[in-house]
Design a protein around this nucleic acid. Sequence first.
RNA 1: GCGAGCGUAGCUCAACCGGUCAGAGCACUGGACUGUGGCUCCAGGGGUUGUGGGUUCGAGCCCCAUCGCUCGCCCCA
Length: 411
Amino acid sequence: MKFSRVKGVHDIYPPEVYVYQKIEETSKEIFRVYGFKEIRLPIIEHTELFQRSIGATTDIVEKEMYTFNDRAGRSITLRPEGTAGAVRAYIENGLYNLPSPQKFYYMGPMFRYERPQAGRFRQFHQIGVEAFGIAEPRMDLEVILLLQALLKRLGFNSLIFELNSLGCPECRPRYRERLIEFFSQKIGAFCSDCQRRFEKNPLRLLDCKVPNCIKERTDAPSILQFLCEGCIKHFEKLRTYLEDTDITYTIRHDLVRGLDYYTRTIFEIKGETLGAQSAIAAGGRYDNLVEEFGGPPTPAIGFAIGMERLASLIKTELYDKGPKAYIAFLGEGAEKVSMKIAESLRARGFWVELGTGGSLKAQLRRADKLKAEYAIIIGEEELKRSVLKWKRLSDGSEGEVMEEEITKVIS
RNA sequence: GCGAGCGUAGCUCAACCGGUCAGAGCACUGGACUGUGGCUCCAGGGGUUGUGGGUUCGAGCCCCAUCGCUCGCCCCA
């Protein structure tokens, strides 16, 4: 019986896992200086949480969720994204009673039942942040700066940063109506996908990549012309901030997010060599979600980074570092001593691997394979005199030291 | 959910028109070199050719199904 992994999931092990560790460590460092604290959220939630937040008619909810009934008959779903759970936790734990803003980050697996392809898997990992309590564009800026700082620290200098505003419940319906009006006159000219989407979510027609559809919609109304006064002010102020902080961005009035909860600011970071999946991070405001979930009116903004997509763009060299020392021993007496020495070196923080016994040749070969920095050799001779023979594998230099002075050599 | 390509040792691949084609390199283990690695040479382990049917005297090679992988569409991080 041979088992294989479930479709669309991956095992991540050395050396690839080091890229993930680097992303995680770098992220934590950035989160610390921006004051974002970790929140660990469950991977399963009640299905309704996602239906209500992401939107019942979105693709994610309609056909991409891992949903099952637990033994008591409750409908449970493996989280397809992180914001819904974060909002739930924020309200359920009364975190709105703490000083505003409350700023969180999380990292972990998400699940979507899709056909796997480049940059898209059924289990994938996101690093996300959510900031609750500040309505002003100041927090939009902070979150964007954080994201930019993180990407910069990871070595990215020229990723594409796209920005748009989706308006609010006051102005978006007006735009939507106007858009329906615009498209309905010439809907026949659009591709079948667009015609289908027209019914469900006309905003999505702005997103189609079919050349003819792009052409047909060139003079479609822009949402930016329909924003209410509050949304315009918010957007303009954010733009000013961005320019003041030298963040280059592109306004894409056709940038649309596939989740229903977004309001006002939305943004996306794009990479290039990712096949069809170019978005490596995306997010936006969701000023009404907390209230809709029964919490106090609380504006919020967040984003998520796709770790696999980000990792695939990081070109650091992957290599396994070896141990500081490999202890080769010859004979039983030496074996005992080598264990003792290994423990004492480990206690002092050195990575030490114990030899396998057998011929010295075999042990040295092993030390070399492991990329050990030093080999420490203990045999009858050394035992008698209480010394250790050491050899630096990189240049072949060797010598002897008293047992207790070995750290002077290998430190 | 739709479409295309591909599935031979751990990895990368070979096997002419279906006829000893189940192989090589790397990796792994050991030996040559019984207390000295990386080089070289030698040996060894490891595959019911993804799985199940079918066609044929005969199939890794052809056909069907199925599973998986890869890529694209849709969608999204």
